[in-house]
C-alpha cells in the first residue's frame, strides 16, 4: 500500500509534529488550563470547586479578610514564595559549584572511561526519589552511617544533628538534581576544541583565565540549560524540605499540596500553581534572553 504525503512542505511538517503536539496538548496544556480555570471559581468546602466565578483565590494571594470583611495586605504567601525562590537559587548555585568540576573532570578522561563515569552519574536516577530521600535519613541521621564510626572512634561524643535542618535540605537538593547539571555541561564541554585551551596557554593565560575566558563562555549554553533544569525542579521540590528538612518551613510546593488536601481550597491551589508556572516561565525566558545577548557579545 502506498501512502500519499501532502505536497505542501508546511502541511507535512505539521503532520509530522502532530503526535507530539497532541500529546503535549492533552497531557500538559489542557490540565494546566483546567487549573487556571479552577482558580477563578468558588471553593467547595469539601474539596473541588463550585459553579460560578470568583476572584477570591487571587485576592487571597495578597490580602487577608479581616473579621469585618475588609481586606488588609498580607504577605505570608509572598514570604513562602520568596523562600522557595531563594532555596532554589541556593540549590542551583551549589549544584553548579559541584557539577562543573565533575563535568570538567569527566571530559579530561579517555573516551571509554567517560562513558563509565557518565553511567555512574546517572545510576542514582534508576531509584525512586523518595527512597533516595529516606536513604539520606539513614546516612545523616542520629547513629547513622556518618555518626556511628565517628562515635566509635571517639571523635565526637554527641549527635552532630545533621538531619532535619538546612544542611540536609541542601544535600537533598544537590544530590537529587546534580546529574541534570553535569550532563548538559558535559555535553557542551565535550564539543570544545581543546586546541583553543592550548593556544591560550601558549599566550601565557593562567589556568583561571583559561576557565574564565575560554571554557566558560564556550560551554555557556550547557551551564544555562543545567541551571534552568536544576532551578525549576528545586523550586517545585517537595521531598527535600518536607522529609529531610523536617517540614518546619513550608515551601511553595508544600503550600500547593496543602491547598488540595487539608485546606480543601482548590481554587487557591490553582492560583498558586499558575503563579509558580509564571515565575518559572518568566525566569527562564529572561535568563535565556540575557545569556543569548552575552553570548553574542562574546563573539
Amino acid at each position: 500500500m502506498e501512502i500519499k504525503l501532502p505536497a505542501n512542505p508546511i502541511t507535512r511538517r505539521w503532520l509530522g509534529l502532530s503526535p507530539a503536539l497532541i500529546t503535549i496538548f492533552i497531557f500538559m496544556v489542557l490540565p494546566i488550563a483546567l487549573l487556571g480555570v479552577y482558580s477563578f471559581k468558588p471553593a467547595d468546602s469539601y474539596g473541588g470547586v463550585e459553579a460560578g466565578f470568583s476572584l477570591d483565590a487571587w485576592i487571597q494571594l495578597f490580602f487577608d479578610r479581616d473579621l469585618d470583611d475588609t481586606l488588609i495586605f498580607d504577605s505570608i504567601y509572598l514570604q513562602i514564595i520568596w523562600r522557595s525562590v531563594m532555596l532554589a537559587a541556593i540549590g542551583t548555585t551549589l549544584s553548579f559549584l559541584v557539577g562543573f568540576p565533575v563535568a570538567w573532570y569527566i571530559v579530561q578522561q579517555p573516551p571509554e572511561r567517560r562513558d563509565i563515569l557518565l553511567l555512574l552519574v546517572t545510576i542514582p536516577f534508576w531509584t525512586n526519589l523518595l527512597i533516595r530521600a529516606y536513604s539520606w535519613i539513614l546516612i545523616l541521621g542520629k547513629n547513622g552511617m556518618i555518626e556511628q564510626p565517628l562515635l566509635a572512634m571517639g571523635l565526637i561524643d554527641d549527635s552532630l544533628e545533621m538531619m532535619y535542618g538546612n544542611m540536609a535540605i541542601g544535600v537533598g537538593l544537590v544530590y537529587s538534581y546534580i546529574p541534570l547539571m553535569i550532563l548538559p555541561i558535559y555535553a557542551s564541554l565535550e564539543k570544545i576544541d581543546f586546541g583553543l585551551v592550548e593556544a591560550a596557554h601558549d599566550l601565557y593565560a593562567d589556568r583561571w583565565a583559561v576557565i574564565q575566558r575560554i571554557v566558560m563562555p564556550l560551554c555557556l549554553p550547557g551551564i544555562i540549560a543545567g541551571c534552568i533544569l536544576v532551578f525549576v525542579l528545586s523550586l517545585g521540590d517537595f521531598i527535600s524540605p518536607s522529609i529531610l528538612g523536617g517540614g518546619k518551613k513550608m515551601m511553595l510546593s508544600n503550600l500547593i499540596q496543602f491547598q488540595f488536601s487539608s485546606a480543601r481550597n482548590w481554587p487557591f491551589g490553582g492560583a498558586l500553581t499558575m503563579l509558580l508556572l509564571m515565575l518559572v516561565a518568566f525566569g527562564s525566558y529572561f535568563y535565556i534572553k540575557a545569556s543569548r545577548k552575552s553570548a553574542y557579545l562574546e563573539k
Partner: peptide, 21 residues
C-alpha cells in the same frame, strides 16, 4: 511549641523514635 519541634511528619515517627532522633 515550634522551637521545641524537630520534625513535622505523619509517617516517620517509628523510625525516628527507634533511632533516638
Amino acid at each position: 511549641q515550634k522551637p521545641h519541634v524537630k520534625v513535622y511528619n505523619s509517617e516517620t515517627m517509628v523510625a525516628n523514635l527507634a533511632s533516638g532522633e
